[in-house]
Simulated scan of single mutants.
Amino acid sequence: MGRNVRKAAFQAPQPSPAQPIAVDPTPLLETMYQRIWATSMRDLPFINPALSVEAVGFRRWQSLTASPLAEDNSPQPSGDPAGRSRPSAQGDWVGALVTPWFINLFVLPGGGNLWSDRPAGARCHIEFPIGPLEFIADHDGSAEIPAYQYCPLFAPPGQFASQTAARAAALAALAALFSNPSPPDTEAPKSAVAKTGASRRAFFRRIAKG
């Protein structure tokens, strides 16, 4: 029977446990993406030349409970399924990054329980006050920040005419992320994927209103 078990053609290796970042990761993240911008992105056709690399709004955040969902909906040791979370001096780092080719939310390891080590390309749903959002893991052992998880907001960010406008959108996204949750849903339970999709739509509506 073992001979008939099918395996995926490629599976990203499980990374080594990420080391918590003890201080504000803004300078490291900006250095990392300024290097990427200078070495491999400048000549691509979808970049927005009005924008530059800037990390905004990074803060520590801690969940009071921990059990997010991975892509296969199995429980994992991080996140906040009840939406109960708070700022914390020992939480993981949450913020946004503006570049000429994207604006994304980031979660970086800080010793809290939002973070869980995942192979590059793996997806997980992390709960915030706004609701669950899907993040994608990435890993580069030689980079200034070897492990991070991101949630795409605008890619490419062609609608922004200036860095000021892009920064404002990133800050509005963070404000929406940490805004008070909606009243509890009294309907029948939905799947994690459906809940994530609804929360993501509400999230982007709040950004648009901002």
Rank of each mutant, 00 (worst) to 15 (best):
R6Y: 12
L97R: 02
P152H: 08
P27A: 11
A70C: 10
P13R: 10
A208S: 12
S191G: 15
P17Y: 05
K195V: 10
M32N: 04
R200A: 15
G83R: 00
A155C: 11
Q163Y: 05
F106N: 06
P119I: 03
I103W: 02
A38P: 03
V23Q: 15
A18D: 09
P129D: 01
H139F: 10
T65E: 14
A18I: 02
S67I: 01
E144Q: 15
P15D: 07
F102T: 11
Q76F: 00
N104H: 14
L28A: 13
I21G: 00
M41H: 09
S199T: 07
A169W: 04
L28N: 03
A176N: 06
R35A: 13
A169R: 02
I103S: 05
H125C: 11
F154D: 12
S88I: 02
Q149E: 10
F154Y: 15
P45H: 01
D24C: 06
K7W: 10
V193D: 14
A122W: 09
L105V: 08
A202H: 12
A22K: 06
Q149L: 01
W115P: 01
A168C: 10
P49D: 09
S67M: 14
A176W: 08
W61P: 01
V5A: 11
R206H: 08
R35V: 06
A198F: 08
V5G: 01
A168Y: 03
Y33I: 05
T65I: 07
G91S: 09
S40Y: 04
A122R: 04
Q62Y: 12
P119A: 11
D185Y: 14
G121W: 07
I145R: 02
F128W: 10
N4I: 03
P157C: 06
L64K: 11
R201D: 12
G141I: 07
R86P: 00
I207M: 13
Y33H: 13
K7L: 14
T186L: 14
Q11L: 12
R3N: 13
G2Y: 08
E127S: 15
P81H: 00
P25F: 05
P152V: 08
P13G: 09
H139R: 05
V107D: 01
P100F: 02
D140M: 08
D80T: 13
A120R: 09
R42P: 05
E30H: 04
K195S: 09
Y150H: 12
N113V: 05
D80C: 15
A8S: 15
G112Q: 03
S88N: 03
R3D: 14
R84K: 15
A120E: 12
T186S: 12
D185K: 08
D138L: 00
A9L: 13
R60C: 01
S142R: 14
L28H: 06
I47Q: 12
G131C: 06
P17A: 14
P129H: 00
S67L: 10
G141R: 12
T26L: 04
S182H: 10
S199L: 03
A38Q: 15
P132H: 05
S52I: 02
A89C: 03
A143F: 01
E71W: 07
P75G: 00
S142F: 05
P183K: 10
E144C: 09
G197P: 00
S63E: 01
Q90E: 13
G110W: 01
A165F: 02
E71K: 08
V193T: 13
